[in-house]
C-alpha cells in the first residue's frame, strides 16, 4: 500500500472508532468529569453493577432476545420450507414481497402500528395495560421473521430436492426425512438467521419503546430514560461492556466460520 492510502485508511478508522475509544477511556475515569481524566479506576463499573434497575433491564433484554430469536427461527424456518415448495409464479413472488416489506418500513411506523394493534386488541378483550413482555415478544418475533426466512431460503434452494425423497425411500416418514436429511443441510442458514434475530432484538429500541409497558424495560429503553437526566460515567462503563461483548461474539463467529470453511476445503 502506498503512503497516502495508508493515511487515508488510518483516518477512516480513526473517524469510525474515535467516539468509542473516547468512551472507553472515560469509563475508567475516577471522577465524573467529562473533560478531564483524573485517574484510572473501576469505580463506575462498581456503580453500574450495583444498579438494580440496569441489571434487571439487562436480564430482560437477554431473555427477550433469546426467546424471540428462538421463536422466530422455528416459525421462519417452517415458513421458508413452505415457500420453497411453491412453484415459481406470481403468487410466490408476491409472498416474498410481503415478507420483505417489514424490513423496509421505518421502525417508527412498525412500532406505532403494533402498539395500536395491541392496545386495540386489549380493548377488545377488555384489558387495560396489555403492553408488557407478551406484546414486546410478539413484536420482536415479527420483525425478526423476515431475516430468518431470507437466510434459510437460499440454503434450501442449494440443497438437492431429492434428499428428502432419498430419506423416505430408506424408510423415513416425511416428517422424519425433513429432520434427518434436509435440516442438516440448511442448518448453517438457520444458525445465521438465529444470530441475526438475536442481535436485532438486543439492539432494538424504537419498536420496543412503543410495544412494551412500564413493567418490562429493556436495556436500550432503560439507558434512554436515564440519559433524559444527566449521563453519568456508569453509562460509559455499560456501553463499553456491550461493545466488548459484541466484539468478542463477532470474533468468535468469524473464527468458527473460518474453521468450518477450512474443514470443508480439507474434505473436498
Amino acid at each position: 500500500m502506498k503512503l497516502p492510502s495508508k493515511i487515508y485508511t488510518f483516518l477512516i478508522f480513526l473517524f469510525l472508532y474515535a467516539p468509542i475509544i473516547v468512551m472507553i477511556v472515560f469509563s475508567f475515569n475516577s471522577t465524573n468529569s467529562t473533560g478531564l481524566m483524573a485517574g484510572f479506576s473501576l469505580r463506575w463499573y462498581a456503580v453500574l453493577f450495583s444498579n438494580k434497575n440496569i441489571m434487571q433491564a439487562l436480564y430482560n433484554t437477554l431473555i427477550l432476545a433469546v426467546a424471540s430469536a428462538l421463536i422466530a427461527t422455528v416459525i421462519g424456518t417452517a415458513a421458508a420450507v413452505g415457500i420453497d415448495k411453491w412453484k415459481k409464479n406470481l403468487f410466490r413472488s408476491s409472498v416474498m414481497g410481503v415478507t420483505n416489506i417489514p424490513m423496509m418500513t421505518p421502525e417508527i411506523v412498525t412500532g406505532v402500528s403494533m402498539m395500536l394493534l395491541f392496545v386495540f386488541m386489549g380493548r377488545v378483550i377488555g384489558r387495560q395495560g396489555i403492553l408488557g413482555f407478551g406484546t414486546i415478544l410478539i413484536a420482536h418475533v415479527t420483525f425478526n421473521l423476515p431475516y430468518v426466512i431470507l437466510s434459510v431460503l437460499p440454503k434450501l434452494r442449494q440443497t438437492d430436492p431429492h434428499l428428502a425423497e432419498a430419506a423416505q425411500d430408506l424408510g423415513c416418514t416425511p416428517l422424519r426425512s425433513f429432520f434427518k436429511a434436509v435440516l442438516p443441510s440448511i442448518s448453517p442458514g438457520i444458525v445465521t438467521g438465529m444470530i441475526m434475530a438475536f442481535t436485532l432484538s438486543l439492539d432494538d429500541f424504537i419498536i420496543s419503546y412503543f410495544t412494551t409497558g412500564p413493567g418490562f424495560q429493556t436495556l436500550p429503553i432503560a439507558i434512554f430514560s436515564m440519559t433524559k437526566k444527566r449521563v453519568k460515567p456508569d453509562m460509559y462503563a455499560l456501553s463499553t461492556l456491550i461493545f466488548v461483548s459484541i466484539l468478542v461474539l463477532l470474533i468468535l463467529t468469524n473464527v468458527a466460520q473460518a474453521r468450518g470453511e477450512n474443514k470443508k476445503k480439507k474434505n473436498i
Binding site: D160, H162, D169, A181, S185
Partner: peptide, 20 residues
Amino acid sequence: VPPHKRHVNTIFQRYALFPH
C-alpha cells in the same frame, strides 16, 4: 401406500447422498 412403506429402493439420477 407412502414410499417409506414400500419394499423398493431407488438410486436417484443425481445420487442424492447425504452430504452431512
